[in-house]
Amino acid sequence: MTQLRQRMSEDMQVRNLALNTQLSYLQQVSLFARHFGKSPDLLGREDIRAYQVYLTNEKK
């Protein structure tokens, strides 16, 4: 597990999110990163916006 993923997982546990919610969020971040072919820590606000546009237009 990468350090970023571990941190995200720990932060969600501290916030007492349900396990299925945690797994869903981790999966969505993974799909986001795969879409750009980069680690999520290298992506920024514009990448998030571009991904949201992609999801809206392509994935509906």
Rank of each mutant, 00 (worst) to 15 (best):
S30Q: 10
L23H: 05
N16H: 14
L43Q: 00
F36M: 02
P40S: 04
R15P: 02
V29L: 06
M8I: 15
L19K: 10
R15I: 02
R7G: 07
R7W: 05
L17H: 15
A18W: 06
V14D: 13
Y25S: 07
L4H: 05
R5Y: 10
S24L: 07
S24I: 12
S39E: 03
R34D: 00
N20G: 07
L31Q: 09
E10K: 14
H35P: 03
R15C: 00
L43W: 00
D11E: 13
R15A: 08
G37T: 04
Q13K: 13
F32P: 07
L42P: 00
N16S: 13
R45C: 00
Y25A: 06
K38D: 00
L4E: 06
S39W: 01
S30Y: 11
D41G: 13
A18K: 15
L31S: 10
F36E: 03
M8L: 13
P40D: 00
S30W: 09
L43F: 00
G37E: 03
S39Y: 04
R45H: 04
M12C: 06
F36R: 05
F36V: 10
A33L: 01
L4R: 08
L26R: 15
F32A: 09
R7D: 12
R15W: 04
A33Y: 02
Y25H: 07
M8R: 11
H35Q: 10
S39M: 02
A18R: 11
L4Y: 13
S39K: 09
L17Q: 14
N16L: 08
L17E: 09
F32Y: 15
N16G: 05
L26V: 08
G44I: 00
R45Q: 01
L19R: 10
A33K: 09
F32G: 05
Y25I: 04
G44W: 00
P40N: 03
L23V: 06
R7M: 08
K38H: 10
D11P: 01
H35T: 05
R15Q: 12
R15V: 00
N16W: 07
R45V: 02
L26S: 08
R34H: 05
F36L: 02
V29D: 01
L17F: 13
